[in-house]
Structures are given as C-alpha cells and as structure tokens.
Design a protein around this nucleic acid. Sequence first.
DNA 1: CAAGGTATGTCAGACTGCTGACATGAGTCA
DNA 2: TGACTCATGTCAGCAGTCTGACATACCTTG
Lengths: 150, 150
Amino acid sequence: MSQDEAGVDLETSLGYLLKEASSALRAAMEAVLRPLGMTVTHYSCLELLAQRPGLSNSELARGAFVTRQSMNVLLQALERDGYVTRPAEAPVGKVLPARLTPRGRRSLAKASAAVRSVEVRMLSGMTDAEQSAAYAALQSMIRSLQTPSS
Amino acid sequence: MSQDEAGVDLETSLGYLLKEASSALRAAMEAVLRPLGMTVTHYSCLELLAQRPGLSNSELARGAFVTRQSMNVLLQALERDGYVTRPAEAPVGKVLPARLTPRGRRSLAKASAAVRSVEVRMLSGMTDAEQSAAYAALQSMIRSLQTPSS
DNA sequence: CAAGGTATGTCAGACTGCTGACATGAGTCA
DNA sequence: TGACTCATGTCAGCAGTCTGACATACCTTG
C-alpha cells in the first residue's frame, strides 16, 4: 500500500482542502453525536431553533444546508417525538413557526456540549489571529461563490 | 419573511462557516458539472486518476471522501461505460489499479475546466497572502480533527 | 511456521437527501 | 381588481451513499 504519495495538484488546491476540512469536521461531529442518537442535520435543526425560536421549515432548511423537503421530513419526526412544536394552522400565510419543547431543549443541551468540544479541538492549534484570518477567508469564498457565474 | 436577522452564535462559529463555505463550493461545482452529466464524486474520481494513475478503489474512496463501497459502485459504472480500466486480476494482493481510458481523459478535460473556473471564482476576492493564510488554517483544523478525541 | 491483525474488493439491504411536482398564500404592478 | 411572480408546505419517486457482512491476501509477532 502506498500510504501517502507525494502530493500533486489536488494537494495544493484550496477547494480540495476545504472539502477535506469539512469532511473531517463532519466525521468528528458524527462521532460525538452518534452516541446521543443524533445526526448532524438533526442537531443543526435544534441548535438553530434554540438560537432563533420561531424559524420556519424553509428557514431551517437553509440554515442547515439541506432542501426544505429534507428538513420537513426531519421536522415531522421531531414533532412526532415531542422535541419540537408547530401550530396546527399558520398564523400568517403558510409559514409554520417551529419552537423547541422543554424536551427538545434538554436533548440539545447534551449535543451542544459535545459539538462544542469538537470545535474547541478543531481550533486548538490556531492562534486568535489565525482564526480571524480563516474567518475572513471563508467569508470571502462564500461571497464569491454566491454570485452566480453565468 | 425575516431574510437575515441579527447573527447569533452560529454566525460567529468557524465550524458553521466552514460548513457554509463547503456547501457553497459543492453547490457551485454541482451546477457546472450537471450539464456534463457528472456528479462531484464522479469528477473527483477521474481527477484523482489523472493525477495519480493506478490508484486502487479504496485509495480513490479516501481521496473522494466516500466509503470504498460507494466508490466501487461508481468505478463499476465508469468501467462499464469505458471511462476507466482495471485489470481482470490483481497483479499483487487484491488491489486492482485503475487507469483512465482516452475517453475518460476527454471527459475529464471538460469537467476539469469547469471546476477550475469555479475555484478561480472562489479565490477571486482574496489576495495571495489571504489564500496562504486560509491554506494554513484549514490544514491546522484538519490536523487537530484527525487526532481522535477519546 | 502458525496466528492474529489489518486492508482490500465486493455483494446486499437500508436510509438519507435530492429532484420533480402540486396547491396555496403574499406581495407587486398595470 | 386581476394577472404575475415568488415563497412556502407537502407528497411522491429516485439517486447516491452508508452500514453490515463475507472471503481473501498481506504483514506482523510470537
């Protein structure tokens, strides 16, 4: 087995490195969330609702980077299991504002601590200046990519 | 619709920003690869083979951040359609080294140009120094995350 | 040399998330 | 007011990926 050959172009690509970092972060989050019976999207949904109560299904989907269809499936399960509540009828339009139940809040507390430990570990080798630089760089990439190419 | 409310904790999290950037990159890549009938993993496989001919199924899987089972499904399809060749029997052990066919190389050429344009766009707003800083930061994150927490 | 551990390729089943599609409600403009 | 556009919630079908499992080949270690 050739464990690690000399790096080529892919190794110098920021895009590839971004994917690698994101993949590592996701794997680390899955590892700590699995014992709690949670997926990353599941956790993201709860965390979003804790920080911004009343978000709609579509808003949650955007915040968790999935489609609103996928988020809808998740929300229905969370509602069925009593982690989240949504009014039976929309107070205005079709938008159904979702909120955490006490049970949802308890469930999130554990997950939140686990995820925070992952983030702390991820940042452990970086100075504050490096973190700021990374923050600015990532925001710049996002801004450039959001502009449609065509 | 509350388009963009005041940012909260999530907005200041490097982990969240990393996920956002990765998601934006993936979406941009999918957008340019779709007209070519290619998925991101599909492209990644071809690109890896172009830069390191003879990679095995498992090595390709690691390089594309999927399981070896998933990569195997893809490789079989690519082999069936004549983009890739693998020897019928392993020259040594069970490892089957894969190689691009001329057809695979032609297919990759178009995709590669499309993906490169995305990366150029992503980096358009950053100076060389910022790119270097981002590079170092991402590598640091990867290194810290690869160390198991337990 | 035998035994355990590790890595590989592959098959099968299950699942998650996505695309496509529809009806409905809200804002916009002539 | 009526037509148009856009966003939302939801249903159905599909593609890609994952987990689980098995047989096999290499590499250590006693």
